[in-house]
């Protein structure tokens, strides 16, 4: 993809994935990678930061004799995500107008 994914958009994408259900680091990374070309080393700091800001929590679940750390979105995180989504739709519409303008103007 030729466009940069800034840190805000990355936060929003992580919250979006988690709003559909709890998951763990590896799956989260693979899901993100389907959409963006993000390198894994940048995802851990993002998760840690979102956790410190109270937008997500973690819990451990045993899996094949070891622990797996699951990430879950919090109420604050859901609110934040809704805000991001509104901003994104607004932004997307404006960029659409510029990039594809004329074609579907009313």
């Amino acid at each position: 993809m030729g466009f940069q994914v800034g840190s805000t958009l990355l936060d929003a994408c992580v919250l979006a994935v988690l709003s559909r259900g709890d998951t763990y680091g590896y799956v989260l990374t693979q899901t993100m990678r389907d959409v963006t070309d993000i390198s894994e080393s940048t995802l851990y700091p993002v998760l840690r930061r979102l956790q410190r800001d109270g937008y997500l929590t973690t819990y451990d679940q045993p899996y094949q004799g070891r622990n797996r750390r699951y990430y879950a979105i919090t109420e604050d995180g859901k609110k934040k995500f809704e805000g991001y989504k509104r901003d994104w739709i607004l932004y997307k519409t404006q960029v659409d107008k510029l990039l594809c303008g004329g074609d579907d103007d009313e």
Binding site: Y24, G25, Y26, V27, T29, S39, E40, S41, Y44, L47, R66, N67, R68, R69
Partner: peptide, 22 residues
């Protein structure tokens, strides 16, 4: 976090994960 990541990827993917992680 990174130990889990390696475990979840599986030992057969160890080299690929190391490349991905940087």
């Amino acid at each position: 976090y990174y130990h889990e990541y390696f475990d979840d990827a599986g030992p057969e993917n160890e080299q690929r994960v190391i490349e991905e992680l940087g």
